[in-house]
């Protein structure tokens, strides 16, 4: 503080301190005028009011008959299918994320920063690759349906799970590993007797957390044809069957709330 005061002309310094918030005002104002000016609002279409009213009406009068009709294409079957996509996808992703985590985790070994740096970049790339584009790509490979959804969830979740796993590896207590090493253990013994048992609960906890997110994404992947409840939802919206939309929304809300609280309970038990 002392030296800066001496080095800079006092007046200049005071001026800067006094007015630098103005710079921020100008920057923020600039950003917002750019944001608002750039968007040409189409204006709200005339039917907006009536459509909203029908949606509300649909939500209040859901199509209860759709909950279960034994066709296998009803709400309960598709909700189960959505959960299956999320579950299988998250499970596979968790398995694949473990080696990724070891790749991306920073350690104090020689040259480790190159290894972990490249791992982190790859995980960022995976995380940023849009999930629905992945779904569309997998639909090319395995055809439309929930299998494509499973694959999309499996790959996309690696980005986040790999990152979370690698961070918990970086912060874990290395004591048990040191003990096994000092007792003459080799690398695979250190891994299985010390590292994995120490880190396992945290990995499970993150996997459950990711499962919560996967349930949400599995419920929209159907919009591009990758199985689950999203397919009838987008169809119902396009055909304006609002009471159908209403019951599907209710189904999704109940499913997500139930999974969230279940997973939260399990995670609490783990820690």
């Amino acid at each position: 503080m002392q030296t800066t005061l001496e080095n800079h002309p006092l007046t200049h310094h005071l001026f800067w301190r006094r007015w630098h918030w103005l710079l921020w005002v100008v920057v923020v104002a600039g950003v917002y005028s750019w944001a608002i000016g750039g968007l040409h609002f189409t204006g709200i279409q005339e039917s907006a009011g009536s459509v909203s009213r029908s949606i509300l009406h649909g939500l209040l009068h859901p199509d209860w008959a759709y909950v279960y009709n034994g066709s296998g294409e009803d709400l309960s079957s598709l909700i189960l299918q959505t959960l299956a996509i999320a579950f299988l996808g998250t499970f596979v992703s968790a398995l694949i994320s473990v080696p990724f985590a070891f790749w991306a985790a920073r350690t104090d070994q020689h040259w480790a920063h190159l290894r972990s740096g490249s791992g982190k970049v790859v995980l960022t790339l995976i995380r940023t690759f849009p999930e629905i584009v992945l779904a569309i790509m997998f639909i090319k490979a395995v055809g439309p349906g929930s299998y494509a959804g499973v694959l999309a969830v499996s790959i996309h979740s690696i980005g986040m799970l790999g990152k979370l796993f690698s961070e918990s590896l970086e912060n874990m207590d290395r004591g048990a590993e040191e003990a096994i090493r000092s007792a003459g253990g080799n690398r695979s013994e250190i891994l299985t007797l010390a590292t994995l048992p120490t880190i396992f609960p945290e990995f499970i906890s993150y996997t459950l957390y990711r499962f919560e997110i996967a349930v949400r994404s599995a419920s929209i992947l159907g919009m591009v044809g990758a199985g689950g409840i999203g397919t009838p939802l987008i169809f119902a919206i396009q055909t304006r069957s609002w009471s159908r939309v209403g019951i599907i929304l209710l189904g999704i809300i109940v499913m997500v709330l139930a999974i969230d609280s279940l997973s939260e309970q399990l995670r609490k038990k783990l820690i």
Binding site: T42, G43, I44, A48, I132, R216
Partner: peptide
């Protein structure tokens, strides 16, 4: 409740209400 709804689902509904576009 608000947090249960995925972004694309909201988008699908609001496109139906407000029409195609950035609104």
């Amino acid at each position: 409740l608000v947090r249960t709804l995925p972004d694309l689902l909201l988008a699908a509904i609001f496109v139906a209400v407000f029409g195609i576009g950035s609104t």
